[in-house]
Simulated scan of single mutants.
Amino acid sequence: MNSPKWLLLSFKKRVTLKRIFLFVIVVLLYGECVCFFIDRYFWIDLPCEPAPNNPCTRILFVADPQIIGVNDGDSYTNFIRIWDSDRYLYYSYQHAVSHLKPNVIVFLGDLMDEGSTSTIKEYLKYLKRFHEIFDVSYDVQYIYIPGDNDIGGEFGDWITPEKIFRFEHILSGNQSKRIEYNEYLTFYKINRLVQDYHHGGMDDEEIPSQIRIILSHMPLTNIGFVDSSIKRIKPNVIFSAHNHVPYSIVYDTISEEREFKKIDFSNEIYIAHLKTPKIFEYVVPTCSYRMGVPNMGYGAAVLDNEHGDLKYTIYWIHSRFLILHLYLISLFSIFIMILLLTIIKYLRAMCRRYGKTKNGKNITDYVPVSQNVC
Rank of each mutant, 00 (worst) to 15 (best):
N2T: 12
S3C: 12
S3D: 09
P4D: 05
L8Y: 08
S10R: 07
T16A: 14
L22F: 12
F23S: 11
V24K: 12
I25Y: 03
L28I: 13
C35E: 11
L46R: 14
C56P: 12
C56N: 03
V62R: 09
V62A: 10
V70G: 03
Y76V: 15
Y76T: 12
N78I: 14
F79T: 12
W83T: 06
W83M: 11
D86N: 13
L89K: 01
L89P: 01
Y91E: 01
S98V: 00
K101A: 06
K101V: 00
V106S: 04
V106Y: 01
F107Y: 10
M112L: 15
K121Y: 03
E122C: 00
Y123I: 02
L124F: 08
L127G: 00
F130Y: 08
S137M: 00
V140A: 08
Q141G: 03
Y144F: 15
P146Q: 00
D150M: 07
P161F: 01
I164R: 02
F165S: 13
S176E: 15
S176T: 14
E183W: 13
E206D: 15
I207T: 06
S209I: 12
M218E: 15
I230M: 07
R232W: 04
I238G: 06
F239G: 07
Y247P: 09
I249R: 11
I254Y: 03
E257K: 08
F260G: 00
I271G: 03
P277Q: 01
K278P: 02
F280D: 01
T286K: 08
Y289P: 14
M291E: 09
G292D: 03
G292L: 08
G297H: 00
A301D: 01
N305F: 08
D309P: 02
I317M: 09
S319G: 15
L339S: 13
Y346K: 09
Y346Q: 07
M350E: 13
R352Y: 11
K361I: 10
K361W: 09
I363N: 08
I363Q: 11
I363A: 10
T364K: 10
V373H: 05
